[in-house]
Amino acid sequence: MQDRWNAFMPYPDADVGHAATGPLSHLRLAVKDLFDVAGYPTAAGSAAVLAASGIKPLTAPLVQKLLDAGACFVGKTKTDELAYSLIGGNIHFGMPINPRDPTLIPGGSSSGSAVAVAADLADIGLGTDTSGSIRLPAAVNGLIGWRPTHGSLDDRALRPLAPSFDAPGFVTRSLEAMSEVMSAVGTPAANDQPQSIVIAEDIFETIDSSVADKMVASLRSAAMPIRRTGAISSLSLADLALAFTTILQSEAWESNKTLFEQAPEAIAPDIAARLLSGSRLDDGQVREARAIAKHFSQEIDRLLGANLVLALPTLAMSPPNRDAEPESLAAFRSACIKLLCLSGLSGCPQLAFPIANCAGNGSLSLLGVRSGDSTLMNVARRLRAE
């Protein structure tokens, strides 16, 4: 397979079998190099992890479920180092190229999976989403991105980053393919439609007014009532993002502490700095952040409890160029976390998809109650976003 988009890890091919028939038998599967696949190493975007990996004898249960449903494995894809970024870069293995616009970042950390699907080298991209690593690259590459209800999919044989937020997720080019994936991994069907779509004014104020108008127009096309609320939470988006980042950094340090202590020089400077930030957090800071997460989760339950779905923009700003200065990349990451953290803090599912008739990287997201993943798909179909 020609990989001019630099989406895949350059591993020698190994035989990965799949069922001859099944609901996914017509679809090709690309797997983020965070999941074990028998016959391959698992590098997690790290040269040091790769060196210690060895060839894995067993395949991660979630990957095996997809293979048993007939999906054909086409390779392991690149990821940001330790899956700890939203940009898509990697000093060890290179940055995949965004097929939609090669001048832009591909988004991360599921960069390779998203690029493989966007370039039509795969139909299903399996990745992970901790702080937006499925939803952001889906938006940047014009794809459908699904972050499932936290804890609903099997995460064994998956290298962790921050377990409180880590979730396996998927990217596809179509809602139809994503619906097939949802069914294949055992997502319960939705029994009814939500009563209305909620728009939080403080969220839509974070984006350009013309883009916001197009998003609202797209929502109205579903012929569903739209309910407006002033704010999604009693806390500001900035406070929520800070709590999320505190928990993320604390757990990322615990997940990678041994690696850092053994080979700090083998980790990219920006990733190492983020890990060190987590090491400096005290227990009181982390406890306070977890209390905020619990409070926000309760607020989301109250907001969406009456069979509602929250609509929000996937990205807070346009993605930067792939050669942008570190300060620009950091500003983009910081702005986007304010929206992307909401699903992580609440554990709720989120479905991101391109907005019809919206130029650039217009991507709308739907966030629903826990275990309400299929409801989001039903609403997305009504919005006719593709």
Rank of each mutant, 00 (worst) to 15 (best):
G278Q: 01
D3S: 06
D68F: 07
A263I: 06
I97Y: 04
I97P: 02
Y40H: 06
R156Q: 14
R4Q: 15
Q285T: 11
S53Y: 07
Y11R: 04
A380R: 02
P99L: 09
E299R: 07
E261V: 08
M224C: 01
A293W: 03
T128F: 00
C336H: 11
S371A: 13
V115F: 06
L121H: 11
P10T: 08
N361P: 00
L219C: 07
W5M: 10
M182H: 00
I134C: 06
V49H: 11
A60S: 13
D129H: 08
L367P: 05
S111D: 01
D192W: 12
P188E: 09
G112W: 04
K65S: 12
N98A: 10
D239I: 08
G17P: 06
L237N: 11
S46L: 02
P61S: 06
F296E: 07
L24R: 07
T77F: 05
L27E: 01
I197R: 05
L27D: 01
L175T: 11
P57C: 01
A316C: 12
T42I: 10
H26E: 14
A44R: 02
I199L: 10
N378I: 02
I271Y: 08
L351G: 04
D301R: 11
A177H: 15
A189E: 15
R280H: 14
D208N: 15
Q298N: 12
